[in-house]
């Protein structure tokens, strides 16, 4: 049911032409997803999604909306080619889903390989109970380092873009 709600919210986000509404709806969407994650036993992820999707993203988009027009001006723009591409992609995914393993089944490959190691060995290896933290910061720590670099890169990029003083519409040479 939560998923159905998500679909409705998602559609609403796409269809509204008021960006402020879209942003708010997007925040709701993110919060719902966070709830879904919590239901799926992913506490860490839920916390993060709530903080990021509903928190930071929303604040940032609002900050940008303070600088840019609130309404879309482009005409309704539903194009057939796009619809075809989306349909094909979706059809491919549905086709794939037919062979995906049963949802939540402990016999799924995901729960047979690698995953169990973390569940069984984390405490023996590091003596901490939170497996997510263990995998994140030790077993797959280079990924997490990458993650830190990603956020820093974005920070540097935004800094490079916005730390200069704005000027009036300038053509060509900035």
């Amino acid at each position: 049911m939560l998923l159905l709600f998500l679909v409705v919210v998602g559609l609403a986000v796409v269809l509204t032409r008021d960006l402020l509404k879209a942003t708010m709806l997007f925040a709701i969407y993110s919060l719902t997803i966070a709830g879904l994650f919590a239901l799926l036993d992913a506490g860490d992820v839920a916390l993060t999604e709530a903080a990021v999707g509903a928190g930071i993203s929303t604040v940032l988009i609002l900050a940008v909306l303070a600088l840019t027009p609130r309404f879309e001006t482009t005409k309704a723009g539903h194009s057939l080619p796009a619809l075809v591409i989306v349909t094909i992609t979706g059809a491919a995914l549905v086709y794939a889903s037919l062979d995906l393993p049963q949802f939540g089944d402990p016999a799924n490959p995901v729960h047979q390989h690698v995953g169990p190691y973390y569940i069984e060995q984390t405490y023996a290896d590091m003596g901490i109970p939170n497996m997510v933290a263990a995998v994140l910061a030790s077993y797959r720590s280079i990924d997490t380092m990458g993650e830190a670099v990603v956020i820093l890169t974005a920070g540097l990029g935004v800094y490079a873009l916005l730390a200069t003083r704005p000027r009036r519409r300038d053509k060509g040479d900035r």
Partner: peptide
């Protein structure tokens, strides 16, 4: 940093006389 850069941009843009819109308008 994100927040500070985005938030400050508005003040700077106003100072430069760029056309602005009220977000809650």
């Amino acid at each position: 940093l994100f927040f500070l850069l985005f938030a400050r941009r508005r003040a700077e843009a106003e100072a430069e006389g760029l056309p602005l819109v009220d977000p809650l308008d």
